[in-house]
């Protein structure tokens, strides 16, 4: 690995000053499970690495009834699923963080880092989109908030400007009649990158028979994780049934624009979108009824 400087600021404004003062050779370190590999393999370069794990705002993980989930940008996958209240309140997010790498990776890798690495196949991003999560960004020009579905712009690229830092993600509070799920397809049981992935979030009516609101998001089938707007809109008012899930899967396929690569063909990935959308909707509805 080439040489770089290292800084571990303890205050957010100190981190912003460091990031603003340094050039474009500054890289942010949270869990390091992507950036350290990229620096070692020469895929990215760095003059300065800024470790953000000592800044309290970025390590906060807090669930509250009226505000929902506050997820500091450097919080590890493990802390999310180890908290039984959080895992039960946001099962679609818990599904994803339990399958990102093995235990060693989950001890360090953060959901904020998964978002900022902006891989099209990121497992944590579809659940964030399905939950209508908001990205809270701080930079030299102040703070701004962005819906997660607008965050990624291309493989490995996102809306963060020079000197900006993702501080936290917030997920809205969940009513008791809401449920969610994330599933990906991989050819083995563990430790692999998604061939395709889908997250579904639903809110049912009082009877539990009709869908009031739904949000579906997909991974590994486009240059960025995508929000399946049409499928989500169409689900409003539909009766919970296998036929409805299957039709939503067909609609979700229309936003998929996958590539052929060593993990799968475009045709296969598109097929998987239908299957995974249907299955995650079924699980989300089942969870919403509990």
């Amino acid at each position: 690995m080439i040489d770089f400087e290292y800084a571990a600021p303890t205050q957010l404004d100190e981190a912003i000053r460091l990031l603003a003062a340094a050039g474009d050779g500054t890289r942010i370190l949270a869990g390091g499970t992507d950036i350290i590999v990229q620096l070692r393999e020469g895929l990215r370069s760095a003059d300065l690495v800024v470790d953000i794990k000592k800044i309290s705002e970025l390590t906060q993980l807090k669930l509250s009834g009226d505000k929902g989930l506050h997820l500091g940008a450097s919080v590890s996958c493990r802390r999310i699923y180890d908290d039984q209240n959080i895992a039960a309140s946001y099962p679609g997010l818990a599904d994803a963080v339990r399958i990102i790498g093995g235990w060693q990776i989950q001890s360090r890798a953060s959901v904020g880092g998964n978002l900022c690495n902006s891989s099209p196949a990121a497992d944590a991003i579809p659940p964030l989109i399905a939950y209508s999560a908001t990205a809270h960004i701080a930079g030299p020009g102040g703070k701004r908030m962005v819906p997660v579905e607008e965050f990624c712009t291309a493989p490995g690229h996102n809306i963060l400007q020079q000197g900006e830092l993702l501080v936290a993600l917030t997920l809205p509070p969940q009513p008791s009649n809401a449920g969610s799920a994330y599933q990906r397809f991989i050819p083995r049981n563990e430790m692999d990158i998604a061939v395709a992935g889908a997250a579904s979030w639903v809110q049912l009516d009082q009877s539990g028979e009709r869908i009031e609101q739904a949000r579906i998001a997909l991974s590994a089938v486009a240059p960025t994780p995508v929000f399946a707007v049409d499928a989500s809109e169409w689900l409003k008012g539909q009766v919970v049934s296998e036929e409805v899930f299957a039709e939503a899967g067909e609609l979700a396929k229309r936003v998929a624009s996958p590539i052929d690569d060593m993990r799968g063909t475009a045709e296969y990935r598109t097929h998987l979108v239908g299957v995974l959308t249907k299955r995650t909707l079924a699980t989300a509805c089942q969870r919403a009824r509990k």
């Binding site: 370190l29 350290i36 470790d51």
Partner: peptide, 17 residues
Amino acid sequence: LDGLPVDSCLVLAVEAE
């Protein structure tokens, strides 16, 4: 590392402070 298994190849030694 602080009670959790990690891949030490993905930890910078300076982080061990």
